[in-house]
């Protein structure tokens, strides 16, 4: 342990020490990206993957499961991912209190409110729609909330990678909706699900 008796290191070493400490601290406070991004990635990869196998691209399902089963897989994986992410966030938020934890709390409630409202709107509208369109409504509306909140999160924490992730989610969502339910599920699974897994490990390695 460094103590007063120890001779002070050279200015270069002190500067390096400051930089290393700053990087370590930022890394620690940001939370583990493997807990914050990867669970969503896995949930979308498998959940949208299942939906895609149900829809197929030419109107023919690739897997004989009902839409309810496919949506069920999707939703339970999302709940699981939410649980893991919440664990990651609680582990982070015990370390610091003050303005930034107030920020995090409000942001958390914004997610909750967005998802609840999405469910209210979609459950009111979806019975009026043909099955494929109703599935697409749920998927597209939930990804709209996700994308907008990631962009907002980027603004709150001045984090360009988070902002950019939100932009990608919205872009994939838009293209998917235009192309239809099967394509939406395929693109979301591969690009967003796979993308989130890759981003989480890339952020983790970069530190």
């Amino acid at each position: 342990m460094a103590d007063d008796g120890e001779p002070a290191p050279s200015p270069e070493e002190m500067l390096r020490l400051i930089e290393r400490q700053r990087a370590d601290t930022v890394r620690r406070l940001k939370g583990d990206p493997r807990l914050l991004y990867a669970p969503w990635g896995v949930a979308w990869l498998l959940g949208f993957g299942t939906l895609f196998l149900h829809y197929g691209l030419g109107g023919e399902p690739y897997l004989a499961i009902s839409q309810m089963q496919a949506v069920g897989v999707m939703l339970s994986l999302q709940v699981l991912a939410g649980g893991v992410a919440a664990y990651g966030i609680t582990r982070m938020s015990g370390q610091v209190r003050g303005d930034s934890s107030a920020r995090g709390t409000m942001y958390g409630y914004a997610w909750f409110a967005g998802m609840v409202l999405m469910a209210v709107v979609a459950s009111r509208m979806s019975p009026q729609l043909p099955p494929e369109e109703s599935g697409l409504l749920w998927a597209a509306a939930s990804m709209l909330v996700v994308g907008v909140l990631y962009m907002a999160g980027g603004a709150i924490w001045l984090d360009w990678s988070m902002f950019f992730v939100g932009v990608c989610v919205l872009a994939v969502n838009a293209v998917g909706v235009v192309l239809g339910a099967g394509w939406h599920a395929l693109l979301s699974s591969v690009l967003l699900g796979g993308g989130f897994v890759v981003v989480s490990f890339w952020l983790w390695r970069r530190g």
């Binding site: 342990m1 460094a2 103590d3 007063d4 120890e6 002070a8 290191p9 002190m14 020490l17 400051i18 400490q21 700053r22 370590d24 601290t25 930022v26 620690r28 406070l29 015990g94 370390q95 610091v96 209190r97 003050g98 303005d99 930034s100 934890s101």
Partner: peptide, 29 residues
Amino acid sequence: HAQARLRVVAALNTLGDGDEMAFPALKDL
């Protein structure tokens, strides 16, 4: 200008203006 205290100050300096860090978290860090 002493390694240990410089690290303490450098770590706390990364926090936002209205933020405080819990002692055990700082100790682990």
